[in-house]
Nucleic acid binder design. Sequence first.
DNA 1: TTAAAAAGACTGACCAGTCAGTTTTTATAT
DNA 2: ATATAAAAACTGACTGGTCAGTCTTTTTAA
Lengths: 218, 218
Amino acid sequence: MKAAGSKILDAALKCSRGDGFHNTTTADIVRESGVSQGALYLYFATKEDIIVALADDRHHSEAIINALAQAEQDPVRGLLSLIDLYGAGLADTTRLDARRVGIQGWAEALRSPRINDSVIAGLSTVRAAIIRLIERGQHTGQIRPEVDAEALSRILVATFQGLVMQVVWGEPVDRAACGRVIRGLIRAALLTPEALDALGSRPAPFPDRFESRKESLP
Amino acid sequence: MKAAGSKILDAALKCSRGDGFHNTTTADIVRESGVSQGALYLYFATKEDIIVALADDRHHSEAIINALAQAEQDPVRGLLSLIDLYGAGLADTTRLDARRVGIQGWAEALRSPRINDSVIAGLSTVRAAIIRLIERGQHTGQIRPEVDAEALSRILVATFQGLVMQVVWGEPVDRAACGRVIRGLIRAALLTPEALDALGSRPAPFPDRFESRKESLP
DNA sequence: TTAAAAAGACTGACCAGTCAGTTTTTATAT
DNA sequence: ATATAAAAACTGACTGGTCAGTCTTTTTAA
């Protein structure tokens, strides 16, 4: 038996996925979850609270953080595998609903301070991990010292945010090609010549190593 | 005297900026616009039509396109000035409202095919211009031929989409630093050695040429 | 004089949240 | 074990307020 709280959130997610938070009624959630109208308010004080819980970005980013923590080896490989992680995430159609709702959360963050907080918190955690990688890379001499870690972390996160939107909008994003370009950008612009040599890919700025998973573009 | 149609849209923008489309009532729009409840429905058949008109991304991107069309000189300079354009746009607090509403439109595009169409149309127009620049640059030998123009256009647009969100969320984005990083990425990774020489910036991969406008970060 | 434009009071549908009552679970006593 | 009491969890019909959209009346323009 599933906990009622998460049954409600699952149902809310399923409903919001299609029509958005605001076109989803508590009646919809009741129907979808099997929980009664009254019970809804045993777990959440208001519908807004359900939205806040749904939009909480912290959980979404936890997966990335955890995976990154595992890969705490070579910082440069860590950065490159981050791109793989996100690339794989873009391909994972099973998480499409969560991503749709996540984007709605990004818009809701404009009006709800609570949602804003959770979005910023999720963002910051991921960025902190990226910054740590970059700075370690600079310490080991693999990443050029003049690179602004803070700015680069924002740019990387921003790029993935935008790509997620494009994918979810149904655009025919060629993930493999995008991954190749991003890797190319990082390698050519951020790595020191020594680090490039170590990767053994000096001559080809756009190595063909990103495609890995089977594709099924619409 | 202003046309009633745009008075309505202006008012709707002003109301939606704060609380979002869905927490804005027709009564709010009536109050803000000075147009009567009945007159609203002379210009828009439904409230949804007002939202669709507000969220129309095509207008937003027109400014960029026009500015780019002007700068139809050297493709590489065009690309770099595109970054300036967006950077300046990020700084322009007067367009903050429109940007807030634009982000809401990105979320609405998930449920409304009409909004999806207009968002994709705006995206495609900008991307087409970028792709044209890149391909011209490849033709003139300034941009490496192995660069995937389509993918790069998506990445550039995605980056700006993400940065716009971060700014509007109130994050302390250092635009100057971000501009420097993006320029650095483009120069180091995309340009041919000859083009780099022509720019006269071979030794410094991160030239300090982005800061231009007076800053006022929160 | 007439047609079009605008006004604004009105309404019916809808929906978040409530509450009085019911069932289930837990605790205690026999 | 079984009975009983008390508490907790749950139910679903109900409601009061809200709001998109309408409709009759009034104003303006031709």
